[in-house]
Design a protein around this nucleic acid. Structure first.
Lengths: 233, 233
DNA sequence: AAAAATTTTTAGACAACACTAAAAAATTTG
DNA sequence: CAAATTTTTTAGTGTTGTCTAAAAATTTTT
């Protein structure tokens, strides 16, 4: 007979990248009204199975990163939310780096930032922040949490909220699927691009718009609804 | 009774970061005369146990990344060496980035680069290379392999090979322990610093040197042997 | 409110790596 | 060259995270 005494010095609060992915997913799915996130939705967000999620949230719960009640979904604890916000901060700062410094296109950066966001270094991200000039928004227009996890408040206006004749500049997008982003690249729409609403077709809520001096573009309501803008002064 | 048919689509040749660490360690330990690297030395290099290494090299061997003969050590296959060189390229380019762009000190970058070297993206590293101006050496003076894994040939001269009165500039270091590097930082020695040998003491092979107009420094032979230089023209 | 459908959880495995303890091979010593 | 020492391997486990299949709980239908 033999007893193994393993001493696992789990003394620090370092998270695995899987843990970070779960927390980020739960944060994203929590929305404004922070009610329990369903096991299935987490599974879908992370491209995994409900049974895996069920296992995992139980473990996260033991680590006090989420509150989890069987059959009633999962919410982040304060600690869990802090970690999620740090990961989001890192993700978005790296995205700025990839676009601004390395000249990547919008549609190429997400997967790379998914990896970079897990790099562990207290100093690195703040130095990167400084190097980038303390940006407030990522290339998709999403706000970058500060060191304390606070979002700069940016009032978002959607393109389909404009009236005919109004002009605005693109400040971001709400949807970051590869298809959508590469579509924007194709038509030459970029962060800061000027957009003018030329016409509005009531029957399908589509918009005729002018971008970069081209007036031959029409956006479906779905597209317009995913374009964040701010009105030109 | 129940049969599980798992279909593991191990169709791609993506490596885990552990695999990359092993290959890098084996490359580093192989030296000029590429004879089998001992299990123990790999274990020491990776701060793990010989039994773990024994397991692992067997698996790497199945993947054709190393040649492994029981009790006779491990060597990299061509494929394994290619991967190792790519990881080294990535490590060193990130180190340049950390020092040049983010203004990190020499002694802080190794651990961060250890993480960054595992980021997977075909385009990322070449864009980074371009962004940095295609550097040939990392901040320690070590050569950066090109896209094809070829090292630029840099003839290394050690400080303790100089004669009294000769001057040289520091091109790199052979030892990258934190202690050593932070010592160099403390005395203000940097890549490109000019060093003049003022005196040589035969009894312990120590050198009196002049750096940054200070003439009060003495290097032990151990230190001098770890300083790579090139003679000033 | 019972039946049907859906969601969630458990149970049992698997894969990648790590570790301890002990056995086996190789090397060094005397 | 046999004995002692060192190196390496095997055997048995642990941990994290994933999966399938099946059971349990919840929600929706009728």
């Amino acid at each position: 007979m033999c007893l193994n005494f393993y001493i696992y010095t789990n003394t620090d609060n370092m998270q695995t990248s899987t843990t970070e992915d779960y927390l980020k997913a739960i944060f994203k799915l929590s929305g404004i009204y922070k009610k329990g996130v369903s096991t299935n939705s987490i599974a879908e967000e992370l491209s995994t199975k409900a049974s895996s999620v069920s296992d995992m949230v139980k473990k996260l719960s033991e680590k006090k990163l989420v509150d989890y009640v069987k059959y009633q979904g999962t919410t982040l604890t304060k600690e869990g939310e802090n970690i999620a916000l740090k990961v989001i901060r890192k993700h978005r700062l790296w995205e700025v780096f990839l676009v601004e410094k390395l000249k990547f296109g919008w549609d190429e950066i997400h997967e790379i930032a998914e990896q970079l966001e897990h790099i562990k270094s207290p100093k690195l991200i703040d130095k990167l922040d400084a190097h980038l000039g303390f940006p407030k928004k990522d290339p998709h227009g999403d706000p970058i949490p500060d060191k304390n996890g606070l979002f700069p408040t940016i009032k978002k206006l959607k393109l389909n909220e404009l009236k005919i004749g109004e002009k605005a500049i693109l400040t971001g997008v709400s949807e970051d699927s590869k298809d959508f982003l590469s579509y924007l690249d194709t038509i030459g729409l970029k962060l800061g691009s000027s957009i003018e609403v030329l016409d509005y077709f009531k029957f399908d809520k589509s918009l005729k718009v002018k971008i970069n001096n081209r007036s031959d573009l029409t956006f479906s309501d779905l597209v317009a609804n995913n374009l964040n803008i701010s009105k030109e002064n």
